[in-house]
Design a protein around this nucleic acid. Sequence first.
DNA 1: ACAGGAACCTGATAGC
DNA 2: TGCTATCAGGTTCCTG
Length: 274
Amino acid sequence: MPEMPEVETIRRTLVDKVVGRTIRDIDIALPRLIKWPSAGEFKAIVIGKKIIDLKRRGKYLILGLEDKTVIVIHLRMTGRLYYTPAGVQHDKFARIIFNLDNGDIVQYADSRTLGTLYAMPGDELWRISGLAKMGPEPLSEDFTMTYLENGLKKRKGIIKALLLNQQFIGGLGNIYVDECLAIAGIHPARRADSLSEAEVDRLFHAINKVIADGIEHGGTTFRDYRDGTGQSGTHQFHLHVYGRKALPCLKCGAVIEKIETAGRGTHFCPNCQI
DNA sequence: ACAGGAACCTGATAGC
DNA sequence: TGCTATCAGGTTCCTG
């Protein structure tokens, strides 16, 4: 589910509630979600430690604990991570509960159970290859026009697949890729190396704009996504093409089409996106 | 390098 | 109402 704007929103809404708290205990209802180390070792590493900070890299959340230990969480398709006051009913799909020293909880809920959790010393993040190999993020210093231009130039693959590749750009997912290609006026099935200078320029600005807007709107809630307090986002009300199959393009009125590209549902305007 | 498919999983929804 | 098919915001692994 969550792409970078959703994960960033979770981080922002959760950080002040958890920093300074100590993890008193953990209830693990579904041990297989813990990918490193074992569920038992995970508990041993984490219980009793104070939360120092909450960071994000791409779609990964990184909870920093004292003693330089970290908990890393990737929500995949339907993961949620949110703070719940003591006594309030748990999420229907709660899988792992972090019990805090003040009695409140942080629950990891996940209907499809595809999410992944890890705990390790902070200098062992190389164990998580998706994190270690992640490319630069939109809105970051490393993500420059030059980086995008040079990267596109040497790729013969389909632009949509490349933008989804976290090693190329960290944080984009299916919704925001469709959106930035729509804003840039680029057909999702174009070859990456076929983009003109003007198109690369439009794409660069569209990627940053779409991500910034997504964050400003607190993420896109289609179904499962909630922020760090359990609230929905509002960016679903600002989408150009995603989820708008058979509806008129907001720019030209042509009917939005949905095709399959890079193995994913892909929405675009056949008139605006060439 | 790249495309395509399968796998990992479960639940909501659309269609009949 | 109930059964079945389809689809889902992600990532990784395998084959060709």
